[in-house]
Amino acid sequence: MKLRNVWIIWAKETKIAFASFAAYAAFTCFLFVSGYLFWAIVYSLAMNSSNPFGMSDVDVMQFVFRSLVQNLTLILLFLTPLFTMRLFSEEKRTRTIELLFSYPISDLDLMLGKFFGAITLMAFIVLPTLLYPLFLQLKHLAQIQWPVIFVQYLGMFLMGGLYISVGTWISSLNENTGTSFVITLGVLLMLWMLSWGINRFSTIKIAKILHQFSILIHFVNFSKGVLSIPDLSFYLLFIFFFQFLTYQVLQSRVWQGAKE
């Protein structure tokens, strides 16, 4: 792996992403919806605070930002397939992938460059929401605990990274961007809903095991502001595994169709 090659691919991906109108549309939609959510949560808390029978001493970090990041990860679930659908599918459809393979760039460099390119796009969309806690602090409306915000956003980035790694793998399997989008969305929704029907109270053993693979359960600690090593390792290993799958798909062109 050469970092310079990764950088080149990353620069290319970022340039393409920011040249397309889709990135700005996603940016605008995401910030509009997240802004509405933030406003609704803050407004309901403010209404409660001024109500003598309401919750007067609610922890802002938990009430506002915990629910906000939980909702933002769901919105990201719908947006991320838009970033990842064209990573490899578009290259395959336009046959530019052959050109990429002809460059002195390894499959690993290519995969990592594209992965970090998508992460950069996600960061471009997500990071402006940090202005919400900053606003509350500057206006002296709440005491913001920045370490908690850091952990919550770390969790959100890991969750986003997980979405992107799944999307990258699915994109590497398809030539059609539409198909990549639908399959990625379906797989991510399945992973999201894994904890709905089953929980740790389930009497069925397989359900208890499946529960350990729920991407939602591992997000709970991050959303609270608790940095937990098992949760951190879950996301990192999940990302690593799907990146490995993508690498295997890229490598398969070497031996697919070979007779001897």
């Binding site: 001024s50 802002v60 409306l141 709440a142």
Partner: peptide
């Protein structure tokens, strides 16, 4: 802690988000 949102802050928040 209570969160008291005065009229000016509420308008600024709306403008921001």
């Amino acid at each position: 802690q209570p969160l008291i949102l005065d009229r000016v802050s509420a308008a600024q928040l709306l403008l921001l988000v």
